Simulated scan of single mutants.
Amino acid sequence: MDLLGIAENTVKIILILGLPSLLVSMVIGLIISIFQAVTQVSDASLTFVPKMILVSAFILISLPWIGENVQSYTKDLWDLILIFGKQ
């Protein structure tokens, strides 16, 4: 694996780890927007506070999975450092 492959894997890991939180945020935003359209309530804190709380809760719930992926990727990088160091 070369430097370009390492960069490509890094971007993949970033997307895999960030995408679920982004999707949760988008779904929550859509639900709140529908609620605001139906009730005609337009308050800025109505969109921010629930989204912040629910996305934070989702990140806390998925933290073991995120940590496992980061740990696995870091181990792979250290293994690559050892391989490149021997050459």
Rank of each mutant, 00 (worst) to 15 (best):
F48A: 11
G85L: 09
T47H: 05
G18M: 12
V49G: 02
N9Q: 15
I59L: 15
V24K: 03
V70L: 15
N69I: 06
S56W: 06
L82F: 02
Q36D: 04
I28F: 13
I66A: 13
T74N: 03
M26W: 14
L80T: 05
V55H: 07
L15C: 14
V55M: 07
L63Y: 09
L82T: 09
K75G: 02
Y73E: 06
F48P: 01
I53L: 15
S42V: 00
K51W: 12
I13L: 15
G18K: 08
L22C: 10
I59E: 07
D43E: 13
M26I: 15
I34S: 03
L17A: 07
Y73Q: 09
A7Q: 06
K86P: 01
F35M: 07
I6E: 10
I53M: 12
K75S: 05
D76C: 00
F35D: 01
L17Y: 09
I28G: 09
F84V: 05
E8H: 13
T74H: 01
S56L: 15
N69C: 08
G85T: 04
L82R: 04
W65T: 06
I53D: 02
L22V: 15
D43W: 00
E8Y: 11
F48W: 08
I59W: 07
V41C: 00
W65L: 11
D76N: 11
M26N: 13
V70P: 03
I66W: 04
P50A: 05
T47N: 12
V55P: 03
F48Y: 10
A7E: 06
L17I: 08
V41A: 01
L3Y: 08
Q87V: 06
L80Y: 04
S33Q: 00
L60W: 06
I13R: 15
W78V: 06
M26S: 12
S45D: 03
I14Y: 14
K75W: 01
L17D: 12
L4K: 10
G18S: 14
G5F: 02
D2G: 15
I61A: 04
Q71W: 06
P20I: 14
A37N: 05
T74M: 02
V55I: 10
G67S: 08
S56C: 13
V11K: 12
I16V: 14
V49W: 14
V24Q: 02
E68C: 01
E8A: 15
D76S: 08
L19Y: 06
V27I: 13
A37R: 04
I14K: 05
T39I: 01
D79Q: 07
K12I: 10
V55C: 12
I14G: 11
F35K: 00
F84C: 04
I13T: 14
V27A: 13
L19C: 10
S72T: 02
K51L: 13
